[in-house]
């Protein structure tokens, strides 16, 4: 039963969609509109064998990672400041609302006029991830148990220790769940930025070229690459979330 759930079921689901794709391609019978799964796989293998593929993929991932990595400390810092200052919180609130509600393509088009093209994917990734992290960290701060803070104040515990042992454990589940949901968003937004801003040496540029040169097999192959990257990053973050959720007994601390 376990083997069925772990292996057979996902394989059957994948097979169902592949058959559906194959059927649609056969009905359309035009690889310029919809190539078959086999044609796409063939093109994907050709692409991965190319040195440029590794370079473009690595650079795209790097740009997205930079956006995520910058948004993490900025979200922690601003959320902490806003929890202490209502004025700052009120000042930042419209910016967060705008970042959340504005279509990503508007930001990309505005960014094209304002900043260097190379930093657009990182900037857009930041703008997608930051508000999600900020709001969740703030929620974590609000949910920090008052009783524990009262206890720490009674014992005259330093603020560093309060942050480390009371605030951080309270915020951690909110932060990790936000990070887990926003990385998928980050990959999509980052690649969209590369497509619209036509960033050299990027997956986005390759996608854009595939569309312009009417190469749907390339388009689908690169899309598969993006899906795999997104899934791998999400899996990595989920694994991180799970492992940090576990309590560890350090030998020295018993």
């Amino acid at each position: 039963m376990k083997i069925f759930k772990k292996v057979a079921l996902p394989l059957s689901v994948a097979l169902f969609w592949l058959v559906l794709w194959q059927a649609a391609a056969m009905i359309l019978n035009n690889s310029l509109i919809l190539p078959t799964p086999l044609e796409t796989l063939k093109r994907l293998l050709e692409l991965t064998a190319d040195n440029e593929f590794r370079k473009f993929t690595a650079l795209s991932i790097l740009r997205i990672f930079i956006g995520i990595l910058i948004s993490i400390p900025v979200a922690w810092f601003t959320a902490a400041l806003c929890s202490k200052s209502k004025v700052l919180s009120s000042l930042l609130s419209p910016a967060i609302t705008i970042m959340k509600s504005t279509p990503v393509v508007s930001f990309i088009l505005i960014a094209i006029f304002l900043v260097d093209r190379q930093i657009i994917p990182s900037l857009i990734t930041f703008m997608m991830v930051y508000p999600v992290l900020f709001e969740n960290i703030q929620e974590g701060i609000n949910q920090t148990p008052d009783e524990l803070l009262q206890m720490a104040n009674t014992f005259g515990i330093s603020w560093v220790l309060k942050v480390k042992r009371i605030y951080f454990p309270a915020i951690k589940p909110f932060f990790l769940s936000a990070l887990s949901t926003s990385v998928g968003l980050a990959v999509k937004a980052g690649v969209a930025a590369e497509v619209v801003a036509y960033i050299p040496d990027s997956i986005g540029k390759k996608l854009s070229d595939a569309k312009s040169f009417m190469e749907p097999a390339d388009l689908l192959a690169w899309t598969v690459v993006i899906i795999i990257i997104s899934l791998l990053i999400e899996k990595a973050v989920r694994a991180m979330t799970k492992s940090s959720g576990r309590r560890s007994k350090h030998a020295s601390d018993k």
């Binding site: 009783e147 206890m151 515990i157 220790l161 454990p169 309590r247 601390d253 018993k254």
Partner: peptide
Amino acid sequence: SMSFQDSRLLAERTALQNVNFVLGD
């Protein structure tokens, strides 16, 4: 110094680490 009716222990720390918390960890 105070011992609370509802204990108020840190959930992610062991008994030893909870006591050590007030000693500066």
